[in-house]
Design a protein around this nucleic acid. Structure first.
Length: 368
DNA sequence: AAAACGGGGCG
DNA sequence: CGCCCAGTTTT
């Protein structure tokens, strides 16, 4: 039998769902996959332009598979959660080379792709192949929690299991793709996280949360976020038109992106000659005394310090400073580093907080 | 079961 | 400033 919820949702979809999106109605599983990866933990408005850049630059899975990782990361730059991009490339190569470009066409094989979890597998399965798998994303948690008045938390394994069960029971098996799309559209435009449009809602008479005046309390989450403060001093080493950059390693934020030589601290101390000497000596692997000699030989100069840049991430609060150090002759080796000119620099992917600096103070540093 | 992983918008 | 967003992976 069909649940009242399902009937109301499909009715709303036919009568009142006006939400155009570039991937809506798309049947190419590759493009659907692309859109779903881009949209993980990302608002539709934010992902929109990235989707269009990606389908234009890489129209087929082979185009993406053959692209250089750095190019793809540059296209992803600013979107965050960069592992999504690396998994995207990995899976594109797998599909292109191992599967001869034939996209997986069932739930289990979709789930086997790196970067594809239960949500994304259900989304592709239902949108591309109309297979009966219910998507469970933030919208679905919220809409179901409110409609059925469910007080189980949406961020514990038990709660998630419960919501998966309810989502599956309510799915329209015959119109899985349309139902899933409708449910997310409904959650995003009517049953919104804050200030939901209950006054005009077609589900009003059946919505447990509305009838009990609990709309604003649902869904329930039990975990709260804590933000850790971090302080970055980026040392911008400059020599004869080239800048020293390093590729960040995995295991922290921004893995695979580039940065200037980083010294992370417990706070932002005043930039003194002593501090600079200490960092520089350590970076060069020599003692402070040797450093003095070294600086004389290479004519190292401390030129200037940028203002402090701030950025708030979900779990971190960042402050960053950029310290310009010019050499007249090439300094001795820097491990794991690359000297690049300004043009090459622009082609590398950087974290947002570095890009802000590159678009402001860095320009002036290059002129002087 | 919890932590890690970006960046942006909203109240 | 805290919460949320078409979640997944690792610890």
């Amino acid at each position: 039998m069909t649940h009242a919820f399902t009937q109301l949702l499909l009715k709303w979809n036919t009568a009142s769902n006006h939400r155009p999106m570039p991937w809506k109605g798309e049947k190419d599983p590759y493009k659907i996959w692309l859109s779903e990866i881009i949209l993980q933990q990302t608002r539709v408005e934010q992902g929109w332009a990235y989707y269009e850049k990606f389908v234009n630059t890489y129209p087929t899975v082979h185009d993406l598979a053959n692209a250089k990782e750095e190019k793809v990361l540059k296209l992803w730059e600013g979107l965050g959660y960069y592992n999504r991009c690396k998994n995207l490339i990995f899976s594109a190569r797998y599909i292109s080379k191992k599967l001869n470009g034939v996209f997986p066409n069932n739930y289990e094989s979709l789930l086997n792709l790196k970067g594809v979890g239960p949500y994304t597998a259900a989304a592709i399965a239902s949108f591309a192949y109309n297979l009966p798998y219910a998507v469970v994303d933030g919208n679905v948690f919220r809409v179901l929690a409110r409609f059925y008045g469910i007080h189980s938390p949406t961020d514990t394994p038990q709660g998630i299991t419960l919501f998966n069960k309810i989502a599956d029971e309510n799915l329209s098996k015959k119109q899985a793709g349309i139902y899933n799309q409708a449910l997310m559209d409904f959650g995003a435009t009517v049953c919104k996280p804050s200030t939901p449009n209950c006054a005009d809602c077609i589900m009003q008479k059946k919505c447990v949360a509305f009838l009990n005046n609990q709309v604003n309390q649902l869904p329930i989450k039990v975990k709260s976020i804590t933000r850790k403060k971090r302080y970055f001093d980026f040392f911008c080493f400059y020599n004869k038109g080239k800048w020293l950059v390093q590729k960040r390693l995995e295991g922290d934020i921004w893995g695979g992106l580039y940065q200037f030589y980083l010294n992370e601290n417990k706070s932002l101390a005043p930039v003194t000659v002593g501090y600079l000497n200490e960092v520089l000596a350590h970076q060069l692997g020599i003692s402070a005394k040797e450093l003095t000699v070294h600086l004389k030989q290479t004519k190292g100069v401390y030129a200037s310090v940028s203002p402090i840049y701030h950025q708030a991430l979900t779990h971190q609060f960042l402050q960053a400073r950029f310290i310009l150090i010019k050499f007249d002759t090439i300094p001795t080796l820097f491990a794991n580093a690359l000297w690049v000119n300004q043009k090459q620099l622009k082609q590398l992917p950087f974290p947002k907080i570095i890009n802000q600096f590159l678009g402001e103070d860095f320009i002036n540093w290059c002129k002087t």
